[in-house]
Design a protein around this nucleic acid. Structure first.
Lengths: 204, 204
DNA sequence: TTATTAATGTACCGTTCGTTACATAAATAC
DNA sequence: GTATTTATGTAACGAACGGTACATTAATAA
């Protein structure tokens, strides 16, 4: 037999699915931000009583951290995927175009949790802010490294400053999240992307 | 005599200066955001007891509203001024370059209150969100109208979509605020501005 | 069966939130 | 002077915050 008997753990079994509940917490944090999401609202959305949340995920900060990991692996997984496009220009196009679609997806809350999450906040959110800053710097760095690779393959002119180019693409992406929250449509976001990429550096 | 006797009002005189205290509240809201700024912190910074704040400015939401007006008239007055530059390109250059300097001014809190304020928030902040959205749409509209004027004077090609161009400039500006909060330096911001404007539409 | 383990639901903890009642103090009006 | 007006400082309000103690329930182990 190839069926592996999964032995049940010792005590009372969980009444909720770990990942499902995390997904529901994600929706709340995404809509409200870290501070704007209250444990009461999270509890209600997750369908779990508070002590079970703390037992399973830790405190609010740790729950948010786990939510961020799920967010990266799910809704914004397209970012990492875009890096695999064959050319630097296609990477940028894919990244921004997919973002425009993502940000105007009617089933998502507006804006990207990582791009524009917890920019201003009260005292005691320093760790959350740092974590989000690290994520932001992370995808900007991924862009830069991808552009460095392109440069080494003559896919980008040697004159290009990859740090600046990556920061520019990240800046447009972050601005697009603000635009999405402020009411921009998919068409408008795509038009901005086209404008933003119309200055792409090319070999002569 | 040309000196006009300013007659003192009836009751006990205020122990604080209205605009000075508003300036101190501005610093707190700018640093913390609307929700992150507590009345306790505001009270302490303004040097006024709470009932006096409520009497002079109304509740927290109204205080924030008055702070926004002061913010527009002071720290970000350069935005309206930039519109008066002689050409559309100079308008965009001035707007973004001044923003880069503003956002990296060591004496300011990071980020622009209006560009990226209260993007995510808990229940009960709808009015503040709407007000900030209106301000954001306001300066984007000012850019568009300035570009329309430029177009009518052949300062911009007739093929230009001014709505898109204005939205693109606003998007870069908003992204720059995120970058500033995430640690970008003045030099980096200025490099992004240069990159962002390298595709400026010109008559052939 | 009995012991052990772990998750559950209830009910509450202390703190902080925005806001306000109220008595007092300091000015003008008469 | 006395009355009136307005701002002040103290002190507290009810509600919401993040977090937890504790008894109970439901599973496995022996």
């Amino acid at each position: 037999m190839s069926t592996t008997q999964t032995k049940r753990p010792r005590g009372r079994p969980s009444a909720f699915d770990y990942e499902d509940a995390l997904e529901k917490a994600l929706k709340i944090f995404w809509l409200r931000g870290y501070e704007g999401a209250s444990m009461a609202e999270l509890t209600k959305a997750m369908g779990i009583n508070r002590p079970s949340i703390y037992a399973a995920y830790g405190n609010k900060e740790e729950l948010f951290s786990k939510v961020l990991r799920r967010y990266m692996a799910g809704p914004v997984a397209y970012v990492a995927e875009a890096m695999h496009e064959p050319t630097a220009k296609q990477v940028a196009e894919k990244f921004l175009t997919k973002s425009a679609e993502f940000l105007s997806n009617q089933y998502n809350p507006r804006g990207c949790m990582i791009a524009i999450g917890t920019l201003f906040s009260g005292e005691g959110c320093e760790q959350v802010q740092q974590e989000l800053t690290a994520y932001r710097q992370g995808y900007e760095k991924a862009l830069r490294e991808r552009f460095d690779l392109a440069k080494s393959k003559n896919d980008l002119p040697q004159s290009v400053n990859t740090t600046t180019l990556a920061k520019y693409i990240a800046t447009v992406h972050q601005g697009m999240s603000v635009q999405a929250i402020s009411g921009a449509s998919r068409e408008e976001l795509l038009a901005v992307v086209e404008q933003a990429l119309s200055n792409w550096p090319v070999n002569n």
